[in-house]
Amino acid sequence: MSVQNLPRFRRPYGIFLRIRFLNGLQYRAAALGGLVTQFFWGGLTICLYAAFYRSDAAAFPMTFPQLVNYIWLQQAFLALFFVWQNDNEIFDCISSGQVAYELCRPWDLYGMWFARNAAHRLSSAALRCVPVLLVAALLPAPYGLTAPASWQAFLCGLLSGVLGFLVVVAFVMLLYIATFYTLSPLGLRIAVSALSEFLSGGLIPLPFLPDGVRQVVNLLPFASMQNAPFLIYSGSVTGPAILSTMALQCFWLGILFLVGRLLMRRTLRRVVVQGG
């Protein structure tokens, strides 16, 4: 599809996605390397949980196959849901003051950066998810990826995945904005990435947290990232809980989006007035 055929308003966003994807294709060794890493990583993580399962199966907050599904989905969609999987060019562009050029372009900066980050994540996930899912599905039970509990679970998981992905990008937008203000963009990024990795269920799935802590963490925006879709797909969140989970995702998406836009407008006004 050539650029000219795209509807006018979509053009820049579409171009970003296309460039990113083509760029990613150039590096097939990188794709292969990533695949091997994710496969190994997922495998070892599952081995670890298998050991815990052996030590006390009753304490497991979900079934073992559900956990296995969670881990493989996490590895397959790593690029979509982890806060640290970012387009670092934008950070560099803010810290180096290059952002002034971006402001001269005839587009809405929030939308542009949102699209760029999303494109970056989508393109790297597109190359990697299929092989990881495929290989994981071929593994023998109980270590392999299994089909979702029902087609409803699949559809809801998919929808929730889209929401979760948007929540991640909307959250990263706040990180971009914070870069304008902080003295140590790197320190901030490291701290926020570490924190969000834990709170989103990137290190251990949130159901493994003890009572009391879990209920609080579940309400935070981080739980609306990878935690929601993976649990819905694997069937450890079912029934009406699916609806409330997705409602919470929509809520956080709306809040993060609005706050992001508002702060962005204020920040840019400040940048224009003070000249960076």
Binding site: S55, D56, L186, A191, A194, F198
Partner: peptide, 25 residues
């Protein structure tokens, strides 16, 4: 600030161990 940020990176790993052992002993 970067040093402080670095402090946090492995804190998550510590918390994970803590919470897993709270459950499995």
């Amino acid at each position: 600030l970067t040093v402080l940020g670095q402090c946090l990176t492995s804190f998550g790993a510590f918390l994970s161990i803590y919470f897993l052992f709270a459950r499995f002993h």
